[in-house]
Each structure stands twice: as C-alpha cells, then as structure tokens.
Write a protein that binds this DNA or RNA. Structure first.
Lengths: 175, 175, 175, 175
DNA sequence: AATGAATGAGTGTTCATTCAT
DNA sequence: AATGAATGAACACTCATTCAT
C-alpha cells in the first residue's frame, strides 16, 4: 500500500475512533471523513461500508485489549486480582462494551465474535482465579463481573482515576 | 383541554417513555405515535417537535424523582444513606442520566435545567449527610457521587438487583 | 385510501411508465417523482423501493396483456393467427419484453413470475394453434415466436403500423 | 505514439467493446479498465471521458461496417439483395443501432454523425436497388428498411441464425 | 381535533473524473 | 506514462415536520 494511502487509512481509523466515541455509533460517515480531513469517497475506498469501519475499530480495540490481557495474565508472580485491575486500567477507549453497542449484531463478523468470546473467557478466568485467591467477592458470578466492568469501566471517556472505577473495584473486593 | 385530548397526551407520553427507553433516543416519531395508538399528526399537536417531547419526558421523570427524593429526605428517622439507597431504588427508568443522553444540551430548556440543578443539589446534600453520619466513604466528593450513580445506576434497563448496583453501593459504603 | 392519495398513486404510476419507457430502467426515482409533480418522499410512501415500483408497472402491464389475450383467445370464431395479431397490436408499452429488461431477476417477485409464465404459455399455445391451422410458418418453434415478438414488437415506442411489425408478421406467416 | 501506448489503447478499445456489449452502456469505467488489464488512470489518458470512449467504439464499428458494405456493394455480380443480406450477417456487435443507444445524442460528434449518415445512405441505396431488382418488397420505404434492420438485427447478442433475423429477412422479401 | 399524505433535507453509498505518487 | 487514491456530485432511501383532508 502506498505511503499516503496508509497514512490516510490511519487518519480515518483515528477519526472514526474519536467521532464514534464522542458522538455515538450513529455519527455520519461524512463527519468521520471530515474529521480525518478527507472526503467520504476516500473513506469508502478504505472501508466498503459503515459496518466494516465499525468492525475494524472494534476488532482493533479488542485485539489490543486481549493481547495486553494475555501478557499480564502470563505473569505468574501477580495475583489474578492484580491482573484484573491492570486490565481494567488498560480499558481506555472503545473496549468490550463498545463493541456491543457499536455493532447491533456481533455474530455477523466472525473474527470479531471470536475475539469477543476470547476476551470474555479471559475475564471470566481471571475473575474465577481472583475469587479462589480470596480477593474478589464470592457472591458475584464470574460472568457477571464482565457485565459490571463493561458498564462501569469500559465506557467512552472512562479514566483510571474516575471515581466510579475506584468505587466499583472496591465494591468488588472481598471484605 | 378536552378530556380526550388529555387522554391522548398521556398515551403519547407513556408511549414515548416506553419507546425511548427501549429503543434509545433515536426512535422515530412515527414509532412513538403508533405505540400510542395515534398518528404522527396527533403527536405533533401535543408537542411541537421531537425535542419538546424528550424534554417533557425528562422533566416528568426528574420531577417525580425529586418529589420522591424530597419526601424520603424529610423522614428524619432515616439515615441519609438509607434515603440515598431508597432513591437509587426509585431510579427505574429515564432518570438523571437519561436527561443528558436524551438531550444534547440541557441548558436550552429552563425548567429542565432547574430541575436537574435541584436534583443534583438533593443528591449532593444526601451524600454530604451520609458522609457526616459515617456511612458513605469520605474520599469521594459529594458531587462525584452523583456522577457515579448516574452512570452505574440510572441506566435504561438497570434494576435494583443488578449486580452493578449492589457492587457500587457496597463500594460507596465506608469501611 | 384517500382520494388525493389514490390520485397521486396513479400520477406516480403513469410517470414511472413514461419515464422508464423513455429513459430506461435506470431513470432516477427523483426524476419519476418530479415527472409526477411530486417529491421523492411521496413516491416512497406508495412504493417502498425502486424495485417495488418497477414490479408494479410490469405486473400491471402483464396483467392487462394477459386479460386481453385470454378474452381474445376465447373467441372461437377467430383463427389463432388472428388472435395472435390482435394481441400483438395490443402490446403497446412495457409488455413482455420490458419486464425482463426492467427487472434483472423476475423470479424474486412471485406474482410477476407467475404472470410472465402464464403470458408465455398463452403465446406459445396460440403459436402452436396457428401452426396447426397452417397460418404460422412451421419452421419456427412456438417458444421462439415469443422471443421474436418480444424483441420486434414489444418495444417501447413500437406501434401497430410500425414497418417492423408488418414485416415480422409477414415473415411469420406460412407461405 | 509509443508502441506500448498503442497496445494499451487497443486493449482498452477491445475491453470496452466487450464490456459495453455484455453489460450495457452503463458499465463502469473501472470495469472497462480492469478488463483491459489496466487502471482507470491509463484509460483516461487515452480517452478524456466516458463519452469519448463510447464514441470511439461506435465510430470504429460503423467504419468497419461501412468499409465492408462498400466492398460488398462494389461486386457487380451480386444482386443488391444479396449484398444487403451479407451486410446484415456482418452486423455482429455494436453496429448501427448500438450507436444510438450508447450515445444519447449522436449529433454532438461530427465524425460519428457523418459515418452514420454515410451508413444510412449505403443501406438506403442497397434497399432501393433491391426493390428495383424485385427482391425487396416494394411497400416499405427504403429509409424504413434501415429502421427495421436496426431494431431487429443490429442488437447486441443478435446472431445470423437468430429466428428473428430469418423472419425479418423473409418478411422483407418480395412475394 | 385526528389522520395520514407530502415535503425536503439528510445519510449511506457509488462512480466519473482528477491528481499525487 | 501508469497507478491507484481522492474528490465530489449523484442517487436510493429515511424521517422530522407540515398540511390537506
């Protein structure tokens, strides 16, 4: 791919991330293109339709999250709870939750659905481990932890020092 | 206003609450009207435009919340924390948080902005009281409590027995 | 249906017939609407999409042709050849041939596909009869007669006194 | 012109003939270019716009038809009817008729308009001659013969053994 | 006062044409 | 001179809003 096309593609992805995060998944393609400093036509050269763009962004974010999570998870010296907390801190933009709000029907995109499943499995495994190690409260199902984190932490604009993140992590800790 | 007009207005408000809660604030006016068993024309007779309808619903919900909150707050026998928990349980549909997601710019509607301010003040006052009574953790600013509850509790579809609600309330309690 | 809506629907159908006949099936919806003296929105209220409009027109034309053909065919006093000639004279606009050029894929619309099949059957039956009565040349397969008439006679703009029609009918007559 | 440029030009013309014949005159420029094994850019280097490409193809086809027709016409031993039949057999792709369907307005291109006129004149002359020799029916005006042949024979996909061609030629023969 | 039809601006997408590489 | 990316206008279709019935 030509250097300028590559650059423009990246501009588009960055713009899409910004615009969808800020305005929601209904933002117009034109707005994304203008934010990237390009025309719609250029956008459509890189992504055949709106869905493809959303899928790309979601896939990107999930892949990144998963890679980070697996690396963190591999460190045997850390408790599962610590790994979970680090993962939460890594959930900056457009993670777990967004994928589902962005795409009505995740199932349609194979790779994305697979990533979502893997990501869910990782979180569940960490939650289960943290419960066994006695750090995570036992009265919340491991699967439910994903939902809690999704809603509370993995929101556009959420920050590590967001009071809600602190509160939720404290609320999840075993007493 | 004629009795049937009054009835239709109520049908519309109920339908709008249901539809916007279920489908998001982008639901079409026609869908709202059909859900109410009326035509768009009738809808527009009662509300000059989409924004007016959204504002009305938001205003309604906030008024209700505020009335309930003030009544609960007036009971001197209850701790502020207990009042706060009861208020949270009352936030079923379309409360605090919704107003901001529904309307981009609350400031434009005077009555709504006033209600939002009063509601914020009530929550802040309760949070401050609960902190002084030692039930609410002290390291979260009273103003921030509103944000936390907004995001975590006052979501469409949220329920009192939602794990997130439990976790957040536990996370807010002083140790 | 309200009287004005009915009237507008007819205006649209007439305009579509005119525009598609003149400019081909690629004519823009906007052009059809303007020709009808309406806006696109009105057009889309009556027909959910371009295909539906094309199907309606084709169905209309084929139904008419078929009804006329069956009536003519029922007259036992007439030879099959005479019936065929009368049918040909009735093929004014948008008949047999058009349906296939208008819609890429006739099969998608059940009613239309059925009509096309019935129409083909009628023509084939008449051709076979005319051959047995010795009026239609025997070295052209009955099925092929349909193709010949489609191409030669059932064209937009074709007229009964068109030289091509005369020539083709003479060319089809047995010597 | 460089040898490779000349070669590319020919590739484009051949591809355009193939694509427009197969897919109709609405085929995209990109498709033509890809069929030629080139990029759109290269196509536009040779032809300033879509119309120019269509005109070139039409001109080519008409020139060829005319050259063939004149050669055939020069053979004094053949009857005019025989020449006419041979010409008809030569009308394979994109002839007379196509020019008019491809280009809305032939008049805009001087050379093409001239060729069309010459071609019409040749056909008319042959028709007149065939009438005088008693082979072509006399009740069809020589000018009309052009129209008949255009519509019936000079269609994309038409073949010499097409029933319609047989029928029309028989229909044109004097009895 | 209700109905539902008409308007017209807005959005997703395509494609002829231009232009940087 | 070829490539393939970018532009921007055009078209199909939707929906908030207006208006004739």
């Amino acid at each position: 791919m030509r250097a300028d096309a590559q650059r423009n593609r990246e501009l588009i992805v960055a713009a899409a991330l910004e615009v969808f995060t800020e305005c929601g998944a209904d933002a117009s393609m034109d707005r994304v293109a203008r934010t990237a400093g390009l025309s719609v036509g250029a956008l459509y050269r890189h992504f055949p339709d709106r869905r493809a763009l959303l899928e790309h962004i979601a896939t990107d974010a999930l892949s990144d999250l998963l890679a980070f999570g697996r690396a963190a998870s591999a460190e045997q010296s850390a408790t599962r709870w610590e790994v979970l907390v680090r993962l939460v801190a890594h959930c900056t933009v457009l993670p777990l939750a967004m994928t589902k709000s962005l795409l009505g029907d995740i199932g349609a995109h194979v790779r994305l659905a697979a990533l979502a499943a893997e990501s869910d499995a990782l979180f569940e495994e960490l939650a289960r481990g943290a419960q066994q190690e006695g750090d995570l409260r036992g009265d919340v199902a491991p699967r439910a932890v994903i939902g809690v984190l999704n809603t509370a932490v993995c929101r556009p604009g959420a920050r590590v020092d967001d009071p809600l993140v602190t509160v939720v992590l404290d609320g999840l800790k075993a007493r």
